[in-house]
Design a protein around this nucleic acid. Structure first.
Lengths: 236, 236
DNA sequence: GTCTATATTTGGATAGAC
DNA sequence: GTCTATCCAAATATAGAC
């Protein structure tokens, strides 16, 4: 079944309603009836499309994380030098989070609502994502372009700086997402003391593909992957 | 009534149990019966000490925020130069968060569980706290020691970097809190391009009071303040 | 596929004895 | 101040008609 602007599948409507409500009020605070109303169905009809409420949360988090991982991995692999990769990572992460602010909030705050295998899967994917940054910093140190006393601490700090975007960014705010992404990339370069030939590196001295070119069509495919990872009847 | 190691008041036991459970499972996921059991009372007895469950959350957040604000304000005011103030702020914030990791998590994730005046009060106090950093960065720019294209963005980024501590820090981990505080202070100096007489500034070139000297006795008084701000019978 | 109706459990909060 | 017992609203999830 094809999706059009006028004809949105009930499964997609449910997902979008859930992300909206989970982000605003928190997973636990959202009732099945409230979710059904927001999606335009009865609470009973929900269960034709999803497993439990927890399954729905799991699905939302896996889809978003998988999409962001693919996008960011591609952005990093398009560069060769560690400083360029670092900028690509930060900018891709910021742009992804800013374009899907609701999913960002859910991922950032609701891991604790998952238990057992679902939780393990999400944590593993998140760690895989964060490992990208660790390796970039490591590469920069080995190449002699980065210097820092504690690489892991810098990695954690920069990641949380970027993740924090979901707590204050508003699309209608004073800065564009591209400017924010560039600003954070500059902070990242400063945090690792990025230099080349003894000269401190900043974003405007590098040639990096504009962050706005990031291709989010990948998320289409990622959705399927997440569906497959999802046990139960929600896949259909 | 005095507190001793053997004789802990029920009101304090409730507060501690609540912080523990709210941090681990989230405010909404914690039931009154579960809270009562953790505190060692019946669920009915809880209501002798507190108002609603939401009042308890409000009280927890106000007490912690008030204590941290007082501590960090004092640490900043003990310095005069912007670079020193910046380090003092970052270190005080990190140390405070790390010493009370459960309160940090609650403040970071449960503002959305508050409504109306309670929410406004917490947000106002948090903004007041964050305003400290804004003013330090502004001072550094005016003095010519900091340079950054977007001061507010740097402020937001650094704050979230520090706040993120509550999502990964474990007291038994590989780094001491003091080392983390120092590492983040160095990143902060780099993020604002701190220089004095044209020379880039780093933590070990400054004379700043050790973060470990931060006095947390202040939180005693802050508790009283928060109690006064709390409407209802929880004050006694 | 979608509904109404409901089974069942759990939630916050209170009554009233002691 | 603390308890047992309970009220009542809301939760998740399902049954079964259409």
């Amino acid at each position: 079944m094809e999706e059009t602007a006028e004809n949105i599948g009930a499964d997609v409507r449910i997902m979008r309603a859930a992300v909206r409500l989970f982000a605003r009020n928190g997973f636990q605070a959202v009732g099945i009836r409230e979710l059904a109303k927001e999606a335009g169905l009865s609470s009973a009809a929900l269960y034709h499309y999803m497993g439990t409420k927890n399954d729905l949360l799991f699905q939302i988090m896996m889809e978003a994380l998988q999409a962001w991982y693919e996008v960011t991995l591609a952005a990093c692999e398009a560069e060769t030098g560690a400083p360029e990769k670092l900028c690509a990572f930060v900018r891709s992460h910021v742009i992804s989070s800013g374009r899907f602010p609701l999913e960002s909030v859910v991922i950032d705050t609701e891991i604790r609502s998952l238990k057992g295998d679902q939780r393990s899967n999400v944590v593993a994917l998140r760690d895989q994502y964060e490992g990208l940054l660790d390796r970039i910093i490591q590469q920069g140190i080995e190449e002699g372009n980065f210097s820092t006393g504690d690489p892991k601490l810098v990695s954690l700090g920069l990641l949380e700086m970027c993740n924090g975007l979901s707590r204050w960014y508003r699309p209608e705010g004073r800065s564009t997402l591209e400017d924010i992404a560039d600003g954070f990339a500059d902070i990242a370069l400063a945090a690792v003391n990025a230099k080349r030939d003894g000269v401190p590196l900043r974003l405007n001295s590098l040639k990096v593909k504009p962050a706005s070119n990031i291709n989010h069509q990948v998320s289409e495919r990622a959705s399927r992957v997440a569906f497959l990872a999802h046990t139960g009847k929600a896949e259909k």
